[in-house]
Design a protein around this nucleic acid. Structure first.
Lengths: 190, 190
DNA sequence: TGTTGAATGTGATGTAGGTCACCCTATTAC
DNA sequence: GTAATAGGGTGACCTACATCACATTCAACA
């Protein structure tokens, strides 16, 4: 399946638009290839794009004192990633995004997104819908964090995304769960 | 200042629409008065509305085993509250919303919101903008939670919303910070 | 082929914050 | 008025998790 088809399927989850309109929408995306470990957005960058993952896995994360890493999200195929705070407020990045594996992504500029939202009402609906999803997910993660201990958060994650176990190094999973790698290691060696 | 003017100011932060169009928008809201302690959305309810706070303070919270309370948000004047997950997915509420103080709110149904978004492109933009704000805030809260200990989260909150100190009982502030009321008490009696 | 460094496991020990128990003081209800 | 209930403080103790230190495995690569 090519990039256009993948994005079309994704968009079709919330809206239906005619083919030529979708082609126009798609024409604003730029397809990019990244290697494992490559940075996409770094702390301090001007943030002008968001990224739709076609293949591979990204992570968005925050670095505390440039030392400890907290992962906000693993972005799998069909997910979007950026520093949305910086993207919408025009500020500099405080969130980093890079590649956990080799990755294929589609890049859309903030300027183009706003242009498209203005031109095509359905597209504005699509982006509202997408952000809603993100908001609900962020809230759910917050609750899971306040409610549960490290073990149940780990089990929850593995149940929801079993693929992560083999795809992602354990210390990154620890950084997502908000525990030290030592604690995570002890968790599943019971 | 009356309800219409308050909402107009709020909306004007992101869009400009002609007066008669705003009046049409406003006509879909219903103004309601609640007493301190009154429930607005309870676990298990069908969720069909969202609420814009004119005066007073609401809280949205989750009850773990019907025992421990985790507060997601205090909704002050100019803020919106609902169980957005249930509201957008048509499910039953898992989040509760009630009144920390006596409150004046404007209520908008999900049906009307979607109707208005379809009819008036600017309104759709407004709701996209609002959800974006919410998403960025949720992400920021998540990071603060992963990064900081209870004391700095408490100081951060008091610095950002000093009004809460006198407005809201301490055990609710504890439930927002995700610590026990005992721990919070010890925090500021150093 | 040996070296380096990333990823991981594991013991010892420290600590933030939870839990339980009990206290006192305001409100609110009757 | 008195009773009942919400809000809040504080000591004793416990637990989940962090931190530090060190060992092991394995892949990259000079």
């Amino acid at each position: 399946m090519n990039a256009e088809e993948i994005l079309k399927l994704h968009v079709a989850k919330s809206i239906t638009i005619p083919g030529e309109q979708f082609s126009y929408f798609f024409s604003h995306f730029e397809q990019l290839t990244f290697k494992k470990g490559q940075a996409i957005i770094s702390d301090g960058d001007k943030v002008e794009h968001e990224y739709f993952v076609l293949d591979g896995c990204l992570k968005s994360f925050y670095l505390n004192d440039e030392v400890r890493m907290f992962i906000l999200q693993f972005a799998m195929p069909g997910w979007w990633a950026s520093d949305y705070n910086a993207l919408y407020n025009g500020g500099r990045a405080t969130i980093n995004v890079d590649c956990v594996t080799n990755a294929e992504v589609l890049r859309l500029s903030s300027t183009d997104r706003e242009k498209l939202c203005k031109e095509i009402h359905e597209i504005e609906y699509f982006f509202r819908w997408r952000t809603n999803k993100g908001y609900a997910a962020a809230q759910k993660k917050m609750l899971s964090f306040m409610n549960n201990d490290a073990r149940s958060r780990y089990e929850e994650l593995m149940q929801q995304y079993p693929a992560l176990y083999n795809l992602v190094p354990k210390h990154l999973i620890a950084a997502y769960l908000g525990v030290s790698r030592e604690t995570l290691s002890r968790l599943y060696h019971t």
